[in-house]
Design a protein around this nucleic acid. Sequence first.
DNA 1: ATGCAATGTTGACAGCGATTATATCGGGTG
DNA 2: CACCCGATATAATCGCTGTCAACATTGCAT
Lengths: 226, 226
Amino acid sequence: MTMTIPTTPTSYHHGNLRQELMNLAVKHLISDGIGELSLRALAREIGVSQTAPYRHFKDKNALLAALATEGFSRFFEFCLPSEREPRADLSLLYFGLGYVQFAKTHTELFHLMFGPVLQPRNDYPELFAMGREAIYKVRASVERGYKTGVLRELDDVASMAHTVWAAVHGVATLMLDHGDTYGYHRDLDLQAEKSLRMMIAGFCTDPTEISQLPTTLTPYPPEPTE
Amino acid sequence: MTMTIPTTPTSYHHGNLRQELMNLAVKHLISDGIGELSLRALAREIGVSQTAPYRHFKDKNALLAALATEGFSRFFEFCLPSEREPRADLSLLYFGLGYVQFAKTHTELFHLMFGPVLQPRNDYPELFAMGREAIYKVRASVERGYKTGVLRELDDVASMAHTVWAAVHGVATLMLDHGDTYGYHRDLDLQAEKSLRMMIAGFCTDPTEISQLPTTLTPYPPEPTE
DNA sequence: ATGCAATGTTGACAGCGATTATATCGGGTG
DNA sequence: CACCCGATATAATCGCTGTCAACATTGCAT
């Protein structure tokens, strides 16, 4: 009887199936996309019966929802620079840059979190809550921007936050879903950042800070390393 | 031997299968969504064998691509007010409003046309061309706006058009995919229009025209009539 | 008329999500 | 210690799907 930690458990009960399913699912999500992900394939690869996953997830969408929820945790890390930035206008810019960066490096998770696959959201309360949390972060920045006078008070806080969100969301999704309409170049990253700056600058009382901030382009390419 | 026009053909050959498949597919797309659409179900409902559709579409995605391509034709009609408007800034606003309106009334088509389902676009040349045609329309407006001096020359025409596109696209997709994060109200339409105006106004030398134009809200609700 | 390309049919295969009933484990209670 | 119960995994199965290969029918051009 092996007493090793069950990395390769020989026992009847796997013991860590839920987590292992999610880990493997993320991998397949990255390499094959949402549509190709199959519960059966996951179970097969882990070496467990094809119905075992159903002990941990009510159905396939429940697994996807769990992935998306976990994805939000990673997403919030991408937005950390935004929360640490005291200037509200720069904070919004950092939020946008983090948003785009996340979309680029976790494309399939992004589609899961922000796309139409898991709808209506009411069926996934945790996921719903995560979305709310995200928008609240933007609202906080906008409110701060109003108080400090760096943002133009074009509308109430909620509406303004929604607008900022829409701007950022548009840049990111357009980059993902229509990137090949323009060709997949470094230009795309650059264009995304330019678009972000243009729009956010339009919300500022003094746009010079936004335009003067040095570019945050990450070393290109992340290029599918094969 | 009935000589009636084959609305209900009794002959071996259907004669109009391709078009009928597409019509029925659109219907099912509206009521059931992309994921639920099944070639077999379509064939069954039309009263034809389950493999007959493959004489007209290489695979399921080919049918979806055809739908998306056809969808662009309808889409361009929604943008007609934009092309008829001589003032370039208002033209962009109309483009955005048409875009949002289309997304709301043809949600599933919208997801097909602008979402990640049919990717890479290289596999669907006509679809690809349609996307290009759309962006060219925006570019034309931007160029006109530069020449007439109503748009601020924040960047070159292509970049500026991309940015406008991103703004509009963000408003529409956020409305569709995160509408229930805020609740499905008339407020959503209103918010979309406000966001559009805010962003486009930021691109104008004189934003008063944009903000003074009367609201274009259509009678609410389209409400699932069921 | 005849032959060919386009169109539709039949039958089959593998893969999928999901359900039901059954087997195995492990921890807490007597 | 023995026992039982809940949590977990299994086996067998259903109905559905996309897709393929081989065959049947049609209409049009020659």
